[in-house]
């Protein structure tokens, strides 16, 4: 006998993501999910973003890693609340992990919550966490061909940070090729060349982010 099931496979993840989003909106918290390969500069980008926006927004960070808490400690050293999630082998964060981490933060004291996803260009794209925006970072040493190899993440991200821009002279990275490939997958996404550790190019990125946060705030206060 045939029985209809008709539900999303990631039903549980999607339901919890929707609940998370409600919770964030209730508290006026804007949530950014940062995706990139291991070592592309996620934590460095978060630190640069904190330095640029900490006077304007109250920021908190959720650090997702397979193991260790070094990234959360790096953030906390700057006086910013940070929660480490260890996925214990899982290749991506899921919405219930975010919820457990959020429960340890005081949402009333946060305007911007930044999530550092597990270093992976594949899995995190299928998982909604309840964030308002997914942004990806590609670092110059990874090569300009990555949009061809990992198209989904480039198609899904709403902005692309091209990090370690200062290392350009050491690599054969073709920026025109890269921009064209990104445009073909995702014409709406801006590309921000940046050197997170030096602070170069951070202004344009945080201006875009702040604009998104303000847009979200206006949408929130309309309802």
């Amino acid at each position: 006998m045939k029985v209809d099931v008709s539900k999303p496979i990631l039903d549980r993840n999607e339901r919890m993501a929707a609940e998370n989003r409600l919770l964030f909106d209730e508290h006026g918290v804007f949530v950014l999910d940062l995706l990139a390969s291991p070592g592309a500069g996620k934590t460095s980008t978060i630190l640069a973003t904190i330095a640029a926006l900490r006077d304007r927004y109250r920021i908190a960070v959720i650090e997702g890693d397979i193991a260790s808490n070094v990234d959360a400690e790096r953030i906390k050293a700057h006086g910013i609340p940070a929660v480490q999630i260890n996925t214990g082998g899982a290749c991506h964060l899921e919405s219930d992990m975010i919820r457990r981490a959020v429960d340890t933060l005081d949402m009333a004291e946060v305007d911007l919550l930044i999530v550092e996803n597990v270093g992976n260009l594949v899995c995190p794209t299928d998982f909604d966490l309840g964030e308002h925006v997914k942004v990806m970072i590609l670092s110059v040493p990874e090569g300009h061909d990555k949009p061809y190899k990992y198209p989904n993440i480039f198609a899904r991200a709403e902005a692309v940070i091209l990090n370690k821009y200062d290392t350009m002279p050491a690599f054969d990275f073709n920026e025109d090729d890269f921009r064209e490939a990104v445009r073909r997958l995702n014409a709406m996404a801006p590309v921000f060349p940046m050197s997170a550790t030096l602070g170069d190019g951070v202004d344009a990125w945080v201006a875009w982010l702040a604009e998104r946060i303000e847009t979200q705030k206006r949408a929130g206060s309309d309802t």
Binding site: M1, K2, V3, D4, V5, S6, K7, P8, I9, L10, D126
Partner: peptide, 11 residues
Amino acid sequence: ELDIECIDVDL
């Protein structure tokens, strides 16, 4: 899409 459509079962 990532959806479960249906199952076939024995009663």
